[in-house]
Design a protein around this nucleic acid. Structure first.
Lengths: 257, 257
DNA sequence: GCCCATGATAGAACACTGTTCGACAAGCGA
DNA sequence: TCGCTTGTCGAACAGTGTTCTATCATGGGC
């Protein structure tokens, strides 16, 4: 808090061999969280170990514990950081249903951009600063739409759970790294969870179901072709249509009572 | 390879208790799966390790691999076994919405009876014999209700995902064992995920939210009391009401088209 | 200008995990 | 009786999260 901290040091004065050790970043909590997110984005949830992360930061595993307490604490911070990426529009009462769908779509996109996040969020109640700001803005939309208090809060919580239930399936076939063994193979080279391999899996399911004995599985064999329908975007639109429609109906019924 | 191996050991020298070991069950795949389910029910997901399970069966960890291939393979079998507990009624076209809700309620009850199952099911497409029989019967209900093929299949899959999204929150606060450290403390002694501690957590959330600055969080502070509403049964009924209503609406719209 | 408390860094170790390897034993057909 | 298949399992490997402890650097007080 002295005046010294305001004065930037001259660029030629490199103080001791700090550079060698701390060359990347002075290993603050934020630096650790950012590095963790980068590592997770790059190599997936299974690749995140304390040793690996420390190596990434040019330090030792035990040092991280001074800043984040435990791996669980680190994941709490990672979750809040990713939630902080989300943008929620100002409420427009006439368009609350479409705005709510947009929120759901944005949540799904975030879960696809960081496929590990939905698994991290299991068993974690997001209460970090970013999560609070996010909730405030979504709830403002629902209240502006005229939903009564209970339905607004429960509708918000249930929507999150519903979207998570969907994206778990979408991102969860394996927990592998995105595409390849670590080289820069590009983000679209047939990793697990991408549309192409999802379609392959759906085709395999269809063929298997179609091959079942018709007398034991009359309904399923008749519906086999539908199991090949794996357009995730359309499936998701179907889900939030069903949910928001049902929610609006219940809101109308509540208002009438 | 010496002659020593030919000499029978004296009868009083009982080398490991072969009899005592294999008396339970001759360690078949089914015996392993049953023991795994028992262990999971008793001590939770975190307690299931191959060594621990082998000990439970009076054998060595490596032996299990002969029957189940890997821990992942074992979990596949556990999932199918639990799905096999479910009972689905014969279709009654006039009551398809109520029947579908019953299916959802039964799935939730199974997830509460085996709190680990929803976490196991992540990233696993249930295609075992029991899962197939189960799907056949649920789809029969939806088809009897008049839903077109696509809406029947997608409605079924989305319902499962929705219920999973809900029960993940319900069972997922921690992954601890049910009640106590292993002694017979009874199944209702304030483990994580039971109604009492859920209500406590909800009260804490309400108090925290109510304490936030009103100018930054006008909506949330006004809704703080609603965050104390943690009646899981009622929340679940709300969810399946919303979902089934929305599904029925979409079915009616489809039929009109 | 020195000196020590304090913030920060890590090496080493602990108790685990899933999995594999290879040696071993029992049952059985030839 | 031989050989072979089926099954068992102790030991080891590479990895995990976490803790203990020793060490270092630095800033404030004397």
């Amino acid at each position: 808090m002295t005046a010294n901290s305001q004065i930037p040091p001259p660029p030629w004065q490199r103080l001791p061999d700090r550079q060698a050790r701390r060359r990347r970043e002075p290993i603050s909590q934020e630096a650790i969280v950012s590095a963790a997110v980068r590592l997770l984005d790059r190599e997936g949830l299974a690749a995140l170990s304390m040793r690996r992360l420390a190596e990434e930061l040019g330090t030792g595993a035990a040092s991280l514990y001074w800043h984040v307490g435990s791996k669980d604490g680190l994941l709490d911070l990672v979750l809040d950081q990713v939630i902080g990426e989300g943008q929620v529009p100002d409420p427009d009462p006439a368009r609350w249903r479409e705005q709510l769908k947009d929120v759901a779509r944005a949540q799904r996109r975030a879960s696809l951009r960081h496929p590990y996040i939905v698994r991290i969020s299991i068993g974690r109640i997001p209460m970090g600063p970013n999560a609070l700001r996010y909730s405030e803005r979504v709830l403002a939309i629902l209240r502006a739409g005229g939903l009564p208090p209970r339905l607004a809060v429960q509708g918000y919580l249930l929507l999150i759970a519903t979207v998570n239930g969907f994206t778990i399936d979408e991102t969860g076939v394996t927990d592998g790294a995105p595409a390849g063994t670590g080289d820069s193979a590009g983000p679209d080279s047939a990793g697990p969870g991408d549309p192409a391999s999802a379609q392959d899996a759906a085709n395999m399911a269809r063929d298997y179901i179609a091959s079942l004995p018709r007398d034991l599985f009359p309904t399923m064999t008749g519906l086999a072709d539908e199991f090949a329908f794996a357009d995730a975007d359309e499936r998701f639109e179907m889900l939030i249509d069903i949910f928001v429609d049902g929610l609006a109906r219940r809101a109308a019924a509540n208002a009438a009572t």
